[in-house]
Design a protein around this nucleic acid. Structure first.
Length: 100
DNA sequence: TTCCTGACGCTCG
DNA sequence: GCGAGCGCCAGGA
């Protein structure tokens, strides 16, 4: 699954430019690495929209293509996770890819 | 269009 | 070390 494919799929949903950029930035996170919401916001081109990033994550139309579980809070904690399994699932996935 | 809500971040006391 | 407050941006009702 390449970036082009992701872009194409995102096009099928009614997403704003902001949402697309955030999702693509999330997709770009390499396996085994994690980014903070703030860093992700910067990567997406909206350095101060770190709060809105969370809103995009919860929508995440392409899970698990979009590794939203690799996004954590700045203080090191995992933050939240709305997908089935919740926070414990998130922690477990990160551990599975040596990101924890 | 205005108001409310967040998977947040940072500063203070 | 920890909770309270305030600031932040984009969505959704």
């Amino acid at each position: 699954m390449g970036r082009e494919e992701i872009v194409k799929r995102l096009g099928q949903y009614h997403l704003t430019a902001f949402q697309k950029r955030v999702l693509l930035a999330t997709y770009a996170i390499p396996k085994g690495k994690t980014l903070t919401y703030k860093q992700l916001a910067e990567k997406a081109g909206y350095p101060k929209a770190y709060r809105a990033v969370g809103s995009v994550m919860k929508m995440n139309p392409l899970a698990p293509e979009i590794p939203c579980h690799r996004v954590v809070k700045s203080d090191g904690t995992l933050g939240n996770y709305s997908a089935p399994g919740g926070i414990s699932k998130k922690r477990r996935m990160l551990k599975a890819e040596h990101a924890l």
